[in-house]
Design a protein around this nucleic acid. Structure first.
Lengths: 357, 357
DNA sequence: CCCGTCACTGTAAACGTTTCCATGAACGTT
DNA sequence: AACGTTCATGGAAACGTTTACAGTGACGGG
């Protein structure tokens, strides 16, 4: 039952019109709610729609009207940080009457461009780029070109939780104060009495990783300590590589504290410490970054820098969607971040030994 | 630079044709790679495409050709379990030359239907439904209708990691052996010597939650123990509700072990135990379900039932995409699950006291 | 009684593709 | 020399909508 008149496939607006004994124009008008038809006709059309189980062909519609699509592009669909930001985008998009879809580059930086192109082909109204590691000279150029192309098509692209590595950003950017957060985190360790504070850095090509490194170094210097390259290891911000890097850091150096580039690698560092028979926080203190839900479940609870993930997403979406005539072409939003104290930090063993009577 | 000839918006195929001095048909043919044009023309067209920064309008294309879109629908975009399954879908979809998008119902069960409708409107080729709590009589009926409508449009819908609650499924289903897993998990606790094994169940409307409950009860009975309703609490499988439910379970009963409906609520249970001053596993044993990455980071490492999340997604996608003429209309794939032993289970305190000399 | 207004509806032209069919040229076969 | 084949191309008809424009009656004011 409920088959359309057309030879095959979905019923079309013509089938509905035929069945309801009106013209396609009338059906279109009623369905898009663009005006008030007399209840009698309205009903006839609705009945036909019901009977045929008709849905508009959104692709055909997009030929004339706006698509109503907002897309989030993430590097890895399983990363809690990215997906928390994405859920913020989703929320705001829905509030603005749009539909949100999530696409992934599957960890391949170059794919970022092809995904954007694909979205442009689909006529999305906004592309929110969250995270993303590829920040080479050439890639940035192509990104700028892609943004311009989107612009021409009436769509907006905004960088979210990631900063533009070049001189001035050709697109909107929403980020949190990463360097300030890193400074605060390192400072937290220093003021607990640590002097040998290591940093488990992220990939150097990644601007937010560099910012964390800078914040770390700045905090050390503010304490009169010159950063020691031996205390800086590098991971790609996953649990596994964090584990490995932390392990060498803890065995090869006299570090009593580690500031990690993100919570994921911090979880790896905690596991590494445990496997080496070092207690956290008694033998070694650990601080993370991001404040993903995991941070609360790791034992001991991870002291970390809170990044307002949902708000990052919401804000980026607002920027993309709410554009008024007078707005400056490029906008930049900087959200604050603050430290969340849990149980993974304590004074260094020697000091705490000295400190107690 | 690089502006199209049209008044505004993106350049069209006509602009390209004009610039390359060929017909639109030729351009279309060359771009879709449907035949081999002489290199000279080929080059002219490519140059024009480049110069105008042209991308096809995928919506217009979808009017005639297939869309190449595969969609995953999840309940909550921030759930690790769902997103791991989704990444499996993504992988397989890409392998089959399709593009994968993720949509969320944002925790609102009814929204599932509207999202499916929206996807139908976009002409997707496959809809993979992962998770999803709404399984009322009426909802299932509507789901079946939606599946039929998709079918008519030449698209496939498959249920993934979730079973059809009614008599026989009107659509393809891929699931893991949930009841068997629950049986094994409970059995693991029983054979460690526990007799007061509690169950932190999921919502009863949710078929996979019911299956876990059944497996739990079956294991108890196999040990000659009649399930005690007092030992069964309920959460909605989040960390927070798991925490609350576990807390009442641990204070109000003499349970020495808890089998949790999923790892998330198990993490809550572990936290509750800790906050009550009960050590895991010495005072209380905990077993989870799913084996999400978190299970490894919780302390102590969570003994849990491994569900092949990626494979679930891959398999569902294959089912949707690889359909041959002779295939039965409805298929059902059941993947195995097995227990992963970590550190959250030990013999009950009394027994272990008795057991040692 | 005429005419402007109004509410409702239909016709047809976009929108940007793909693809069927036709055309003409070059070329090897009989 | 007449003829099929192949190749490269163009014209035009779909695909399923939306929407500008035009048309129909009905109605009420002059």
């Amino acid at each position: 039952m409920a088959r359309g008149r057309s030879s095959s496939g979905r019923p079309t607006i013509r089938d509905v019109a035929e069945r309801a004994q009106v013209s396609v124009a009338t059906v279109s008008r009623i369905l898009s709610g663009s005006y008030t038809a007399p209840p009698e006709t309205q009903e006839r059309v609705m009945k036909a729609v019901e009977a045929l189980d008709y849905v508009v062909n959104a692709n055909a519609r997009s030929l004339n009207a706006r698509s109503g699509l907002v897309a989030v592009v993430v590097n890895d669909i399983t990363s809690p940080f990215f997906m928390n930001v994405a859920s913020g985008v989703e929320e705001q998009a829905m509030a603005d009457g749009r539909v949100c879809i999530v696409c992934s580059t599957q960890g391949v930086p170059e794919r970022e461009l092809s995904v954007i192109e694909l979205l442009r082909a689909r006529g999305v109204e906004a592309v929110i780029l969250v995270g993303g590691m590829a920040e080479g000279e050439q890639h940035l150029g192509q990104l700028a070109a892609a943004a311009e192309a989107l612009d021409r098509a009436g769509a907006r692209m905004v960088l979210c939780g990631r900063s533009w590595a070049g001189p001035d950003a050709p697109i909107d950017v929403v980020e949190s104060d990463v360097e300030g957060g890193a400074f605060a985190a390192t400072n937290h360790l220093l003021s607990a009495g640590h002097t040998r504070v290591a940093h488990l850095a992220g990939p150097h090509e990644f601007s937010v990783a560099r910012q964390r490194l800078h914040g770390y170094e700045r905090a050390l210097r503010a304490y009169g300590i010159e950063p020691d390259p031996a205390l800086i290891a590098s991971s790609d911000m996953t649990r596994e590589t964090g584990y490995a890097a932390a392990r060498t850091l803890l065995t090869g150096t006299d570090a009593t504290a580690v500031f990690c580039a993100n919570d994921m690698s911090a979880a790896g560092a905690v596991a590494a410490a445990r496997d080496l028979g070092r207690s956290v926080p008694d033998d070694v203190s650990v601080v993370g970054f991001d404040d993903i839900p995991l941070a609360e479940d790791v034992y001991p609870g991870l002291t970390t820098v809170h990044v307002p993930q949902q708000e990052l997403g919401r804000s980026a979406t607002r920027l993309a969607l709410h554009r008024r005539a007078g707005d400056p072409p490029r906008r930049h939003v900087m959200l604050g971040s603050h430290i969340v104290v849990r149980q993974s930090v304590a004074p260094p063993a020697r000091l705490s030994g000295k400190g107690t009577p």
